[in-house]
Design a binder for these strands. Structure first.
Lengths: 209, 209
DNA sequence: TCATGTGCCTAACAGTCGTTAGTTAGGTGT
DNA sequence: ACACCTAACTAACGACTGTTAGGCACATGA
């Protein structure tokens, strides 16, 4: 149904960044510099256009950042859900948790400027933008809670664990990695194994009884 | 030697916030709203003075935030070191680590606006301010590294552990608590026990062999 | 060929930012 | 009484902010 006019938009305009290109660039800048330090003129400069032109694609700065926040969570959520459901039916609790942890961490560190931007700037954006992002956030949190509750009901977790608190500790720890992780010093996937080792088995050496 | 003029400054001026008062208020605002959202005029308003008057006490906004960052780390460092050295000589590795974790977390959540402000705004301040804070930071990190290395050499930790990475994971996890902890839902000291349980022993239930 | 829509541009708006200069009220020491 | 210090004040500077209005080049469809 699209072959009658072949390509609607290709390299017709000189820069051809477009709405999605602006969003990509904004996400990268927000991740690198934080919310307050990134002005519309900085975004426009990086995109090769003028500040006013952004308003052809977006109604306000808040609209840009809101779109980035939602897309960021969506990206992690999709990868985490897919990693978990890709596990075989009889997979151990340990294997499932390792898959979920790796999916979350790699989404932040390897894959998506949107996801990392979300973690870094969520606490800096205006309240109204945070509120708009909350439903998407809650859905991802519920995914984790249901996974953890499933494992607890199977008897795989220590029985007195508080699911909500455990999720907050786990995701908080993984997200904090953004503040210090240097890809030159190690891979995200190796790091996710370290996190899984610590969270699943602890750091004390109990072999001596 | 001070009794000749009794009190040098008490309630002579109407507000009497002074340099330390301005710093206290700035730390609280930075912790609550982030670096970019807090202008000198906001700080001045909260202190009951005018924006220009801040320049009597400080040379620039950077100087204010730098002072807060340093004081913030100093406060956690002092409490952590004191909690560890207050342990008896034959204390177990578990007891020492629990004390250090609780000291760090309580400094953030219970005690000091400076410490929590440091964690929240460090990633938002200008590079030069970050650089100025680095020596203080490194000293605190070295304190943790030496504690962890001591325990590892005693054979208390799993032998293949990477001290630096472990420290980053641990402190990162504790600091992330600031993003979600609600004192109405639980105490910092109870939360620190949860962190210690998870980090020291893991969340998997291995009792079944 | 002509109207339409797209994607960008220029220029400017009012507001806020960190910062500076000059001034002033009140306490203190001589 | 006089000079001095402290801790504030007022008023303004240039730079930067998000945002808006109006115009211009180009591509497409009729």
């Amino acid at each position: 149904m699209a072959d009658t006019h072949a390509s609607k938009v290709n390299e017709t305009s000189r820069s051809a960044v477009g709405r999605d290109g602006v969003l990509d660039i904004a996400a990268r800048l927000f991740r690198e510099q934080g919310y307050g330090s990134v002005s519309l003129r900085k975004i426009a400069d990086a995109a090769g256009i003028k500040a006013g032109s952004i308003y052809y694609h977006f109604g306000s700065k808040d609209e840009i950042v809101a779109a980035i926040l939602d897309a960021g969570i969506q990206a992690v959520h999709d990868r985490m859900r897919q990693a978990v459901s890709a596990q075989p039916a009889g997979a151990s609790a340990e294997a499932v948790l390792r898959a979920a942890i790796e999916a979350h961490l790699r989404a932040l560190l390897d894959v998506s400027d949107y996801s990392s931007a979300n973690v870094r700037i969520f606490g800096q954006v205006p309240q109204s933008v945070r509120d708009a992002n909350l439903p998407t956030r809650r859905a991802y949190e519920a995914e984790w809670d249901s996974l953890l509750a499933r494992l607890r009901d199977k008897g795989a977790l220590k029985p007195d664990v508080d699911i909500r608190r455990l999720r907050l500790m786990l995701i908080g720890a993984l997200n904090a990695t953004l503040e210090w992780f240097d890809p030159k010093r190690g891979s995200a996937s190796a790091l996710s194994q370290s996190y899984a080792d610590v969270f699943l088995h602890g750091i004390l050496d109990d072999t001596g009884g």
